[in-house]
Amino acid sequence: MPPPAMQPKAKHLTNRYFISYFYSQYSVLNKKMNRFEPYTNEPMPAHNEEDDVEVQQVVQEQQNRLINMDWCKCQRCSHMASFDECLCCTEIIAIRETLERDQEVTGPVTCITEHPGFDPVCLNVWTLQLSIGRGRRHRNKSINEKYRHASYKNFVRWTHGYLGRGNRTILPACVVKTIRNHFQSETYVGFKYPNI
């Protein structure tokens, strides 16, 4: 027998109606009891000046990367359009691992663009033609745009492995500069975050 609060108010309800009425009342009561409204009566957190200082430091670092080249350790990078793209190959773990992995064969290399594998993977036209294939995606692009896009993809595959469809990573400035110099175009797009 349900508790008195759950018993039907009307005496003429049959068992079938009683069961449905019971469950409907039980679900309403259950929802009221389990309602969770965080911070309903909690005071707002106090303003923290340390957070403001950290934000100012991050903004200052971003502006510095756009102004000067202190962030480049390989000495082959160039200024890029956005803060995100101002990235040296020595700052990316996957690229450092590629350089360390191949160090016995290549000797000491300071930049990934100096690696003996960079030219055949990213700049060789025959390799890039294989990567482009016969897809419809590149139909309206110039040949240099096709090669540049395939070169970027080959570089990511070589250093990071397969990321999966729609997943992107920012390329270092030295790689972008070398590929753009090799496959020139009138306009460049730069890195775009994927649509969510």
Rank of each mutant, 00 (worst) to 15 (best):
P2L: 07
P3C: 13
Q7G: 03
Q7M: 10
K11S: 14
R16I: 14
R16T: 15
S20I: 15
S24Y: 11
S27G: 02
K32S: 13
M33I: 15
M33P: 01
M33F: 09
N34R: 15
N34M: 10
R35A: 12
R35I: 15
M44W: 09
H47C: 03
N48W: 12
E50D: 14
D52F: 09
D52H: 12
V53F: 13
V53W: 08
E54A: 13
V55N: 10
V58Y: 07
Q60C: 10
Q63Y: 05
N64E: 08
N64V: 04
I67Q: 06
I67P: 04
M69E: 05
M69A: 05
Q75Y: 08
S78R: 11
D84L: 08
E85A: 00
L87N: 01
E97F: 06
E97I: 07
R101Q: 06
V105P: 00
E114G: 04
H115A: 10
P116E: 03
F118V: 07
P120N: 11
L123K: 10
V125R: 07
W126E: 10
T127S: 11
L130N: 12
S131M: 11
I132H: 03
R134E: 09
R134P: 05
R134S: 11
R136S: 12
R136I: 13
N144A: 01
K146H: 05
H149F: 09
H149M: 10
H149D: 12
H149A: 14
Y152P: 01
R157K: 15
W158D: 06
H160I: 03
H160C: 05
R165S: 08
N167H: 13
N167F: 09
V176N: 01
K177F: 05
I179A: 00
N181V: 02
P194I: 03
